[in-house]
Structures are given as structure tokens and as C-alpha cells.
Simulated scan of single mutants.
Amino acid sequence: MAKDFYGELQLGILGGGQLGRMLIQEAINYNVNVHILDPDKNAPCRKLCNRFECGSLNDFDTVYNFGKDLDMITIEIEKVNVDALEKLEGEGVIVYPQSRIIRLIQDKGLQKQFFKQNDIPTAAFQLISNKENLYETAIPLPYIQKLRRDGYDGKGVKKINNTSAIEQAFEEPSLIEELVDFEKEIAVIVARNDRGDVSTFPLVEMEFNPDANLVEFLISPSTLPFEIQTQADEIAKKIAEDLQIVGLLAVEMFLTKDGEILVNELAPRPHNSGHHTIEGNITSQFAQHLRAIFNLPLGATTARTNAVMINLLGEPRYEGLARYEGVEDVLAVEGIFVHLYGKKYTKPFRKMGHVCIVNDDRDLAIKNARWVQKTLKVKA
């Protein structure tokens, strides 16, 4: 920590979306000054921070000038100018997660190589320079093609079923990986501070929207066998230790039908798979991230009760000023918590908010969540 609390610490966040918004809500408890850089003048954080700057996250000068007078910088999105962060680190600004980790995770190819070098279980893969390489690969069809850079929220991913589908493949540098016949998609969020303390949140089980390819439904804690939960927990801790990360790390994994766990991707920040922790756990993922980067004792992550999180996505065929249907209906039910992200405009499958449903009766929590999915809609 460069300074004590009491309103003196100047914290910069690269990105002013919903993750930054929820970080600010938690940072208020620590009495720090929060500065936000985001390219959208209507970003959800714009009215909540001490200083809002509209500018590119990818421009060296913009990021450097934003951060040079701050004590610490963190991120809510990986697509940022790492060269500027490295210069800031060299000049004494604390950057967590460290710039070297952001650089690694920006490139899915480097991520995969990191898994291989550190004996982290992951699907077989091959790095591809351009589309022509896809006609001769060591990975049999069908396989998944992922852009090495800039893929986000389901974008930058394609399933290549046969050789004729290669015509529609990505041209840019990418990787292909073996198509995993998985039973479930699961995730563990792990935190590590500069003291080397490491703590994980209980394993969660996820469902993805088939059209948008992003998390739509999540339940915690998992009821998978203890051995599976333990193995996933150990994998997440190993990755955090191998990276020596300071901050929060979301580890997304596949559980195969054979009971094997394979790591899919990493996110070095608060993540969609941890939103339920605000109501569902003793410490939220946002509080834990701040504890980690401030080098404070990590909080207890025990689940308070069963928690289901659903993403509130913009309805298909609607685009424009956001209008929410069914908010009063869902808020009339005990144990339902609505989080709207302050985004002025909606479009199909845009993340407009999330809802957390908690209940000591797991089946009732799931039933209520399914009802919320049918009742609460974002239109225009």
C-alpha cells in the first residue's frame, strides 16, 4: 500500500462498466478515491467515481497520463495498453494484477502455453498463424477455433465442424482446441494478496446462453462430488501461485463426462461467475479483490445459503433506450435481489444487469430463478 486509507489512496480502474461500478460500491467502504478511464461517455461508472475520464484503454499516452499521478491501478477488462502499465510500474505506480499477467491473459495462445508449461490440465490445442493453416492440423475435426486476442463474452469463438466450414473461419492468429465433450461448465474464483495468502470461493456450476455464448444461469454452492470440488479448488490455487498474481482470478473449467477437469480460460479480475457472492457469500468477490490488491487479510468466502445468479440480457430484436419489464413483480418475492448496471441503451444479449436469488431451499431457489428468467425482461 502506497498510502493509508482515510481517503488518501488514489485508485484508478481501467474500465467503467458494471464490474467497475460494483467495485466502486465496495471501495466506498474503504474511503478511497476512485478514478475511472473508459471510452464510453455514458459508462455505468461515470457518476459514481471521484473522477471520470473518457478515453481509449488501448492508447499508450491516454493510459499513461491517466495513471501517472495515481497510487494504484487495477482493471475491470483485460483489453488495455500493457506497455503503458509497464512504464507506470517502473515509475512506482502499483499495478494489480501485474502488467505481465495482463499481457499473458490477453493472448489465449500464451494462456494455453502457460497451462502446458505448468502442468495445468487443459484441452489439446494447436496455435494457428492464419486460416490456411487450418487445412492441415494435428487436432481432428470438429474443433473449436479461438482468436488469440480480443475475444470476449462469446465473441472470437467458432466451432469448425468440417473442412468446408474453414472458409468461414477467423483469418487472424488463433488457436484451435479439441472439442470437449463436457458434462458441466464450472468455475472457481481465487484471490491472492501480496503476502502470498490465497483463498478460493466455493465451486459454481454454470449454464451458457446458446445464442450469445455467455453465462446466463449460475448456482452456488455446487453439489458435485467432494473430490471434484477439491480438485477444482486445488487447480485454481495452483494457477494463482504459479502466476504469483495479486488480485482476483476467475478460473473457468470444463467437467468432462469422464469426470476430468480441464481449464478453459482465465480472467484476472472480478467475473460474471462471482456476482452471486454479493448476497450469497460472507465476502463478495468485489470486496475480496480490493482486500487482495490493498494487501489486507482476505475475507471468509463461506456460502451463506444457496444462491442462483442469472444475467439480465437485452432481449432479442430490441435495441434503443432500455425499458425494464417485471421489476416490481420479482422484487415482491423474498430473496430476490436485482442489480441494474445503469446502461442507457440496450441491444440483443447486452449485459444490462443481474439478479441473485437466495434461499435455504435449493430447489426453491432454482424454481424462483427460472421464474425470474421468464418474468424480468429488458426491452426498448
Rank of each mutant, 00 (worst) to 15 (best):
T62A: 14
P142C: 06
I278Q: 06
Q168G: 05
I166Y: 04
Q113L: 08
A212T: 02
I28D: 07
S220W: 01
L296T: 04
Q229D: 04
D119S: 14
P97D: 07
F217G: 00
W371Q: 11
T122N: 05
F60L: 14
P270W: 03
T122K: 00
M206P: 03
G154V: 02
L249G: 06
K374E: 15
A187S: 15
E185N: 04
D40W: 07
R21G: 11
E76F: 07
V246W: 07
Q106L: 12
N42I: 13
T375R: 10
V34A: 11
E172G: 07
D197N: 11
Y64F: 15
D360W: 03
A187L: 01
F217Q: 01
K343Y: 10
E328Y: 03
L141D: 02
V308M: 09
A165W: 00
D150C: 07
Q98Y: 13
L37N: 13
A2V: 11
D4Q: 12
R323S: 11
K343E: 14
L19Q: 10
Q231L: 05
V330P: 09
I239Q: 09
F5T: 11
R317H: 10
K47S: 14
S199T: 09
T74I: 08
R148W: 14
D59A: 12
I166D: 05
F182L: 03
F52Y: 14
A369E: 02
T223W: 00
